[in-house]
């Protein structure tokens, strides 16, 4: 299930990434938030009640979109999904579980 719906600019080059260990495809110029929410229905789960969240303001104000990200075999970073662009091969997590190290192509 996806939350965001693409209405324009759909012929951009694809970018491959991993979401909770599964290969996924988004488009060049997508933020992490767009990439995730065009193929899933949440960005993260809250620390107290575990309820699903999917960002709120998209402009770096609410801070409800910080997720865990790994590039290749690098360390886990926490990034603000609405203001970070997706890069080829990123491994993203939508839960408290650390994004796995994914080797090999994401396509």
């Amino acid at each position: 299930m996806s939350l965001l719906v693409r209405y324009a600019e759909q012929s951009r080059p694809p970018v491959h990434f991993f979401l909770d260990g599964q290969p996924q495809t988004a488009l060049s110029g997508d933020t992490l938030l767009t990439a995730i929410l065009t193929c899933a229905n949440r960005l993260r789960q809250t620390e107290f009640t575990g309820e699903n969240r999917a960002g709120f303001c998209l402009m770096g104000a609410c801070q409800d979109c910080w997720i865990q990200v790994r590039r290749g075999t690098g360390p886990v970073e926490r990034l603000r999904a609405c203001s970070t662009l997706l890069e080829e091969g990123m491994s993203l997590s939508t839960s408290a579980t650390v994004p796995p190290v994914m080797t090999g192509a994401a396509s």
């Binding site: 939350l3 965001l4 719906v5 209405y7 767009t34 949440r42 709120f56």
Partner: peptide, 21 residues
Amino acid sequence: PGVYTLGGAQIALKAQGCGIG
């Protein structure tokens, strides 16, 4: 998930070509 600020709804469209539903 699915509830956004008005400004956020506009940014999705303007900066990403996406709608909130």
